[in-house]
Design a protein around this nucleic acid. Sequence first.
DNA 1: TTATTATATAACTATTCGCTTATATATACA
DNA 2: TGTATATATAAGCGAATAGTTATATAATAA
Lengths: 114, 114
Amino acid sequence: MLKTSIQTEKAAVILKLLGDKTRLTMMKLMDSHACCVCEFVEIFQFSQPSISQHLRKLKDLGLVKEERKGQWIFYSVNKNNEYYSFIKPILDQLPSQDYKINELEEKGTRIICC
Amino acid sequence: MLKTSIQTEKAAVILKLLGDKTRLTMMKLMDSHACCVCEFVEIFQFSQPSISQHLRKLKDLGLVKEERKGQWIFYSVNKNNEYYSFIKPILDQLPSQDYKINELEEKGTRIICC
DNA sequence: TTATTATATAACTATTCGCTTATATATACA
DNA sequence: TGTATATATAAGCGAATAGTTATATAATAA
């Protein structure tokens, strides 16, 4: 059953997290692709700790999940999270970021593991 | 025609504004009622300037509109704004705040003008 | 006119935020 | 084992945020 309501306070916390261009773009990307930290570093041109800290915040709220594959840790949107139905309509309205993945592939820096 | 996409940067700015419990609650209220500053002061128990500043931010983005009626200025969600279709699904998932209006009416502090 | 009420703006402050660099941890590989 | 690669954490710093108080502006009422 679709969740139709969410605590206002929780909603505000989630929206604040999504209210950062970097995190919002990451979420849009991770909604359709599992990505690792080094890919985000390449895409956003921020330091690796900066990317890790963004992911940490998203993970702390349960919005993303991580899966280690060898030396890499792949992050993706946690679609089993109870708030996924809240954020999905938001992500769906955002322009696709797939071209960023394509750019990685063209540069040969896309990580495809296992 | 429904707008199905929004610039990522603009979306982030809007979500950041909505990512504050006070503003988010105000937006939910104003989606169904026109409210004036003094009512919000009563509801949230913040100073009048604090409320005015929140409304100013929402107005600067075009998310709300104002209408002066005598000594009061009534604020409501601007449903003609190009981003309304972006925020509407968010507001719709939030719990109703109508009880706050009811409380004002019971206390006799609800402003109904003209 | 003068006083009152409603709202806006300015200035200030404590806290939060998002980045940085430095360092620690964990895995892969020679 | 030692070295390189990937990621996480800690500490620090400047900018942004959300509240406050003081003051200005605008409409109403006496």
